[in-house]
Amino acid sequence: MMMMVTLARKELKSLFASPMGWLLLAISQALVGTYYSLSFNQYFEIMSSGHWQVQRIGMTQFMAEGVFGIAALLLMFLVPLISMKLISEERKSHTMALLMSAPISMTEIILGKLAGIVAYLSLLIISMVVMILLLAPWTEIDLPYLLTHALGLWLLMLASSALGLFFSSLTSNPILAAFCSLTALMVWQMLDKFFTENSQALFHHFSLMQHYRQFAQGMLNSYDLVFFMLFTVFFVLLAIRRLQADKLYG
């Protein structure tokens, strides 16, 4: 357990030690902040026009849909860029064998690296929650809705990170890992768009965005929660199995 925490701390420090880590975080914050400002102004413009449908939505939901919506799109690009080096860079720099020879299991390696990237991306989600909470002096914040929406985005980020980590474990080329992760995430997030004619199609229920939308509507559904957890566990197990195969067969 301590080795896993140490590895997670190492991954987090390495992200902040590189210009790329700060650059990605800065760009993300800038985009989220822009949508925050635009949503804030747009809300009051529509409210002043007396548009009753927006009045019924409430400021918390209106702001969260804009801010969290752009963040969900950002994750599709951020996760491949951040996760691409987790395992592939270790192979490329020939430090993977050294890591495997350390007194640490393959499970601890994968979970430690996953925890590092999740901690990094969680900073973005926390900052968005704080942004909306700063509106409390001027409006009533629907805290249960806000936290439910934030949980959905966090679960989406967790599942995407597990998938990115798996693809990083397949190759020693970080660029190839990023491309495969991005392609897979684009497909997995939009599976429901490919089956619009039949909402009961099997693949419709495998769409990440389909399950995220339930949280975005303020609904805490155990089915969606279990889906994200199983999705994460599935790709974590695949990554562990991949490292075990490397250790056994070289």
Results as ranks from 00 to 15, higher is better:
M2Q: 13
M4N: 03
A8T: 04
P19R: 05
M20G: 14
W22R: 00
L24S: 03
L24F: 07
L25P: 08
L31N: 07
V32C: 06
V32T: 13
V32F: 09
T34N: 11
Y36L: 05
L38V: 15
S39K: 02
S39F: 01
F40A: 09
N41Y: 14
Y43D: 00
F44R: 07
F44S: 04
W52P: 15
Q53G: 10
Q53M: 10
Q53N: 13
Q55E: 11
M63H: 02
E65S: 06
V67W: 04
F68C: 09
F68D: 04
F68Q: 07
I70R: 08
A72F: 03
L78R: 02
L78E: 08
P80C: 13
I82G: 01
S83C: 15
K85G: 10
L86N: 10
I87H: 10
E89V: 09
E89C: 03
S93N: 15
T95Y: 10
T95N: 13
M100W: 08
A102F: 09
T107D: 00
L111H: 04
G112Q: 06
G112R: 11
A115P: 04
V118S: 06
L121P: 03
M128W: 03
M131H: 00
I132V: 09
I132D: 02
L135N: 07
L135W: 05
L135S: 12
P137L: 14
W138F: 13
I141W: 05
D142C: 07
L143T: 12
P144I: 10
Y145H: 09
W154R: 02
W154C: 01
L156E: 01
L158A: 03
S160G: 11
G164P: 06
G164I: 02
S168T: 03
S169H: 11
L170I: 12
P174W: 01
A178G: 01
F179R: 13
L182K: 09
L182N: 08
L182M: 15
T183H: 10
T183A: 15
T183P: 02
A184Q: 03
L185F: 05
L191W: 05
D192T: 05
D192Y: 10
D192M: 12
K193P: 03
F194P: 12
F194E: 12
F195H: 14
T196C: 11
N198T: 08
S199D: 05
S199P: 00
S199Q: 09
L202D: 08
F203Q: 08
H205T: 08
S207V: 02
S207I: 00
S207K: 02
S207Y: 02
Y212C: 00
Y212R: 01
Q214F: 02
A216K: 00
L225F: 04
F228G: 07
V233S: 09
F235S: 00
F235Y: 06
A239M: 06
I240F: 00
I240C: 07
R242H: 03
L243P: 01
A245V: 14
